[in-house]
């Protein structure tokens, strides 16, 4: 474990089995991991490796069938009660009847934060993601990348210590994704949040993370962890550096080792 502080996320022998009519599916088997506060950890792996399941477990959207899971030293249920994390989904999931500003205000409305500070906070978040000029627009008037930035602003609006992100840039084109990768890295450095980031992009994971957790499928489990020691600030040159390729290769090898080339996907 890094540092003496409470880990942001702690899992020990974590298991998740989905029971179904065609038998049980082991989505996650004996997962062990500690994520320190302020870390940026990516979970990478093929479809069905349990990376989204792991994120949903941390968010208390599903309940584990075995093992230990602590979020900020508490049970996920308690962490959710205390609104300890912000969740960014695969799609922006904006409310189409709310303007950009009102979408960012949504968590503050639900959580009944003091009315006086709400507006200022929402504007501040929009500024952080570079969309202050779009406060009055409706979601459909924005591009996919901009919509996802709004959803990140929304997740940060109530200032949670932990950000859980489920393939937030998966649906975007490569150019937009690399741009938003840079933005996210800047946000992470400015806010000091702990980020758990699910992706199936190797270069995205290596570029963003302090550590990359490689997962494999059937059953979903953690195959290995790669420490990313790329220097900051990370930029376009970072992506072209030899060290970047070495680390990406290391992640790729771990993915292959777990995959075994016998699966049909």
């Amino acid at each position: 474990m890094r540092g003496t502080a409470q880990p942001a996320v702690h899992l020990k022998d974590l298991n998740m089995v989905f029971r179904g009519a065609q038998g049980d599916t082991v989505a996650l088997q004996d997962a062990n991991l500690d994520i320190a506060q302020g870390e940026f950890v990516s979970l990478i792996g093929p479809s069905g490796c349990g990376k989204t399941t792991l994120l949903r477990l941390m968010a208390d959207l599903i309940t584990p069938t075995g093992g230990e899971l602590l979020v900020g030293g508490k049970s996920p249920a308690l962490a959710r009660q205390e609104r300890a994390y912000g969740y960014v989904f695969q799609s922006p999931a904006l409310l189409e009847w709310r303007t950009v500003l009102n979408n960012v205000l949504l968590p503050l409305d639900v959580m009944n934060t003091p009315k006086a500070t709400r507006q200022a906070r929402a504007h501040e978040m929009l500024k952080l993601v570079g969309l202050e000029g779009f406060a009055g627009r409706y979601p459909w008037q924005l591009s996919g990348g901009m919509q996802q930035r709004v959803s990140i602003a929304r997740a940060l609006a109530f200032d949670p210590a932990l950000l859980l992100m489920d393939e937030p840039f998966g649906a975007l084109d490569e150019i937009t994704r690399e741009h938003l990768n840079g933005e996210l890295l800047r946000l992470w450095q400015e806010t000091g949040k702990t980020v758990v980031f699910v992706t199936h992009g190797i270069s995205e994971a290596v570029f963003l993370s302090t550590r990359v957790v490689v997962m494999t499928s059937r059953p979903g489990k953690i195959e290995g962890v790669v420490d990313i020691d790329l220097p900051y600030p990370r930029n376009v040159e970072t992506r072209e550096s030899p060290r970047f390729f070495e680390l990406a290769t290391r992640v790729r090898e771990l993915l292959r080792r777990g995959h075994g080339f016998d699966a049909d996907d």
Binding site: A59, L61, R80, Q81, R83, Y85, G86, Y87, F89, Q90, S91, A93, L95, L106, P107, D109, V110, M111
Partner: peptide, 23 residues
């Protein structure tokens, strides 16, 4: 509403009443 939007409200610990009115 999209299941993700419902999950979103769950992560905010929204009450059933809030989910009804706001979503």
């Amino acid at each position: 509403p999209d299941p993700m939007q419902e999950d979103l409200l769950t992560t905010y610990r929204a009450s059933g009443w809030q989910t009804f009115w706001k979503l």
